[in-house]
Simulated scan of single mutants.
Amino acid sequence: MALLPGEAEDEARCSSKGCPADAVWALVWNNPRLHTPDRRKTWLACDEHRVTLADFLTARGFLRDVVPVAEAPVDPGPPRL
């Protein structure tokens, strides 16, 4: 789950399945087979799930950056044609 336009940081929850914890980290990623090079998607993570979510993205070559939630980019969605 990424921060959506208008969503407050204090509403952000961890993206790990079933985790109700507040997000602390934003894992910024991109799947080069699906996304343009400048497109960034975001998963949110609590301290407990930061490593496992990052490992999942890293194993696939998708992870681009890990930043505090306050610095998470807003995903504008795919370009409109």
Rank of each mutant, 00 (worst) to 15 (best):
M1D: 05
A8I: 04
A8W: 08
A8S: 10
E9D: 13
D10V: 14
D10N: 10
E11N: 10
A12C: 10
A12M: 06
R13Q: 00
C14L: 01
S16Q: 00
S16R: 01
K17M: 05
P20A: 00
P20S: 01
P20I: 02
A21I: 06
A23I: 04
V24G: 05
V24C: 09
W25E: 07
A26V: 00
V28E: 13
V28M: 13
V28W: 08
W29M: 15
N30W: 11
P32F: 13
R33Q: 15
L34Y: 11
L34A: 04
T36V: 06
T36Q: 00
T36A: 05
P37L: 10
D38K: 10
K41Y: 07
T42A: 00
L44C: 15
C46H: 00
D47N: 03
E48A: 06
V51C: 00
D55L: 13
F56D: 05
F56H: 07
F56Q: 15
A59H: 14
A59V: 12
R60Q: 14
R60I: 12
G61Q: 11
F62K: 04
R64G: 12
R64K: 12
V66Q: 02
V66E: 03
V66L: 03
V69G: 08
A70P: 11
A72E: 07
P76K: 12
G77N: 14
P78E: 11
P79V: 09
L81W: 08
L81T: 15
L81Y: 09
